[in-house]
Nucleic acid binder design. Structure first.
Lengths: 238, 238
DNA sequence: CGGTCGATTGACCTATATCAACCCTAGTGG
DNA sequence: CCACTAGGGTTGATATAGGTCAATCGACCG
């Protein structure tokens, strides 16, 4: 695929790169695909590339010795996986849907970063945005009720979808959940039973309409936002 | 104070800057002091500078509409406050002890970042480290028991102290808590009563020795680490 | 048709929150 | 000098949100 036609061209780490830089990236990139459930790396593993998510979704997970898991990152199209200058994965990364990555080997990517400020700059921007998002997520994990966690999650997915498609936020929206109930639980610091119960409750009360297990209609975005426990939603629009 | 004598010279955003860059930073920096409890910025406020923590400690806090608070960042000596290119604070920032900041106005700092890759590069490094720390914190908030949260917190403070002084980790250590019980609760996603109870319990069991309310002796670092719920501790050493 | 996987629902339990009393220390002012 | 007060911390009794364990359901698949 040519970079110009790339669906994440204007959002990924290469977003601010100009023509000739893009040509260089083009020549060093390679695509990798993963099936739902497939591991990309394990914590501690050598990871010889960094990548942009082109399509699909992946999760970063941190696990305690006794097996409790917490998803600490949800990578959607445009997001960046890996850390330049670190060749050992700090987290388990797994595909949660059919996933396509646009990969770069560490060494050429590092050299590129040294030479072209745009890429380093964009990566800094993206990292700071992720940090903001992580901090909002800490508020959710530490202080929100189960119901609020679920509502917040639905909103963030809706917002990401709107941001990717440059479409409007608000009113009636349809979102496809990128995660299973179990994965949502690991994302929200809940059990899958609690996730299921809360989703059922929101459904019963008309806050959401469940069509498929993975397909949710939000009849009223604003109404649902009231249930999310009110952190300022602006920052989520990455 | 001259930059060469700065206690955080080798850890702050300026760590990788060379002589002449340092001269430039020197000419544009200015110091500000804050008393314990004093607000630095409120979410949404205009914030006309970025800064390095020289001494003392500050917290970043996120608050829900109905007043539940979560501390989402603990800034210790060397840490960076603010975001280049954003002049509106995204969080409440407050001093929790006598605090000294080394400040730079946005505009000259941005220009400096454009010109000198070292600063931008160091800031990227620091942001990525913070992101790693935030992700470990998400595991704590989402999945750890109260007792494990407290133990983890004591360990991270001990580790930061060791890192700053380049001293050894392990064995018997003494740490000064930068936070009140209430602030610890807001950091750990607990209530202050639960914090107090768990600290008392660890004290009773000899895992820690309380001298002052704010001064804790860890008789055996490794023993306490067992109580922390076992995320790989390596990443904490920022 | 049996088996597997994800999701839902129910009954019960527990870690932590909540509410409340109390303690200790430091500071203040009579 | 000492009573009074305020702020931080501890401790106890009770309530509850969400966890745990277990049964069931539906869809899909060989």
């Amino acid at each position: 695929m040519k970079c110009e036609q790339c669906p994440v061209r204007h959002r990924a780490v290469c977003a601010q790169s100009e023509w000739d830089d893009l040509g260089q990236l083009e020549s060093m990139k390679f695509y990798r695909s993963f099936e739902p459930g497939q591991l990309i790396t394990c914590e501690g593993d050598r990871m010889d590339f960094v990548a942009s998510v082109v399509s699909g979704a992946a999760t970063l997970t941190r696990i305690t010795e006794d097996g409790r898991a917490q998803i600490v990152g949800l990578l959607l199209p445009g997001d960046f996986l890996g850390r330049p200058g670190r060749e050992t994965a700090a987290f388990n990364a797994a595909a949660v849907s059919k996933l396509v990555l646009c990969c770069f080997r560490h060494k050429p990517f590092n050299e590129m970063m040294q030479k072209t400020p745009q890429i380093a700059h964009r990566l800094l921007q993206m990292s700071l945005d992720e940090l903001d998002a992580a901090r909002d997520w800490m508020l959710l994990l530490g202080r929100k009720l189960a119901r609020e966690k679920i509502a917040s999650f639905l909103l963030i997915i809706a917002k990401r979808k709107a941001a990717l498609h440059n479409s409007q936020l608000g009113g009636r929206m349809e979102v496809e959940l990128p995660l299973s109930r179990a994965a949502m639980a690991d994302y929200l610091g809940l059990t899958l039973e609690t996730v299921s119960r809360q989703i059922s409750a929101l459904n019963r009360e008309g806050m959401i309409e469940l069509t498929d297990n993975r397909l949710v209609i939000l009849p009223d975005f604003g109404l649902l936002a009231n249930e999310a426990g009110g952190d300022s939603p602006g920052v989520w629009i990455i």
